[in-house]
Amino acid sequence: MTSPDQIAAQILSTKSLPVSQTWLNAFLSSSSTAQRNIPASALAKSAIFRLLASDIRESLSKHRSYVLPVDIHNPAVQERRLQGSIPVQVLDIEDIGTSLWSQIEAIERVERGEAIRGREIVRTIAIGEDPEASENNRANNNPANGAASASGNSGYGPHRLILQDAAGTMVMGIEMQRIDGIALEKLAIGAKLLLRNPSVARGMLLLSPESVTLLGGKIEALDKPWREGRKARLLEKTAGVERE
């Protein structure tokens, strides 16, 4: 019978995720996995799928080797480089390279069922097409929000993210160079990133393709309300700008 240590070692070697023994034991004892003679590789793949949909504060180790330093927010530290691999989850993502009104208009195009094609606005639901089937097709093409092509946002940012480690420490990260996969249409709330020797300046993570590996995943309980409330948050920000 496969031991928890074997599964944990395989997850760490393949994804650099230091799984919590408590979480792993609960996973292995669940009804869906409590079977004999299942290969360690198959169990590890199943566990990774569950990990990517979990809250890492519950599923990953809080050992200091795998979490952000407690003084990461110190603004007196001009710049430093963290050592090792640190898994984090996305709590918020913001496109700081696109105007607020452009983002609001993009959301409203999605609400109307329209998309941008070049300079032309087209309907995303064809005449005579089943609206439910059309919506399903858009969702299949876009796991994050079902409307990548209709968003009008190319995803080039740069983006500002709020990230959280297994110990619950939250930090802001800025996309210094374009990172494939980091976009409002692609990156779900709760998605897992692996930071590899990232730089920190004045308490802020500097994100680059060399320091970030996207692992994927989503926490449904966080992602759905975040997307449903995004337009209201943008409108609130525009109101604040106008008052200033």
Results as ranks from 00 to 15, higher is better:
R64V: 06
S59Y: 09
G97Y: 11
E129Y: 07
E220D: 14
L28P: 00
G157C: 07
G190I: 05
A133I: 10
E108D: 15
A26F: 02
T33K: 01
I56S: 12
L161Y: 04
P87V: 04
R36W: 01
I127P: 03
Q83S: 14
K192E: 02
L24S: 00
I182E: 03
K192D: 01
I125P: 09
L215M: 12
I179P: 00
Q35N: 06
N25D: 03
A221N: 05
G155N: 06
P69Q: 06
L222W: 15
A42C: 02
L206R: 15
L235S: 08
E132D: 10
I121D: 05
I93E: 00
S102K: 13
D71E: 09
P69K: 11
V241P: 04
M1N: 05
E132A: 14
Q35G: 04
K192I: 15
M170R: 15
G84N: 07
L235C: 11
P158L: 07
S85H: 02
R138A: 13
L163F: 04
S199D: 12
G181I: 00
G173M: 06
R227G: 03
L163K: 00
G113A: 08
I107Y: 04
L193S: 02
S85T: 07
I219W: 01
A239R: 15
A106K: 08
I174A: 09
E236Y: 08
L68R: 13
L60H: 01
R117A: 05
S208T: 15
V200C: 13
L184D: 03
R81G: 02
G203M: 07
N145T: 03
G190Q: 11
S3E: 12
R138L: 15
S41H: 11
L195V: 10
E111T: 05
M170V: 11
E114S: 09
V70G: 07
A8K: 14
R227N: 07
I107M: 11
E120L: 13
P131Q: 10
D5T: 12
A42E: 06
A47T: 02
S41P: 05
L60R: 01
A106N: 14
L68K: 13
A126F: 10
P209I: 09
N153E: 10
I179N: 00
I11S: 07
A40I: 04
Y156W: 13
P87H: 05
E135T: 02
R233N: 09
S3V: 08
R117G: 00
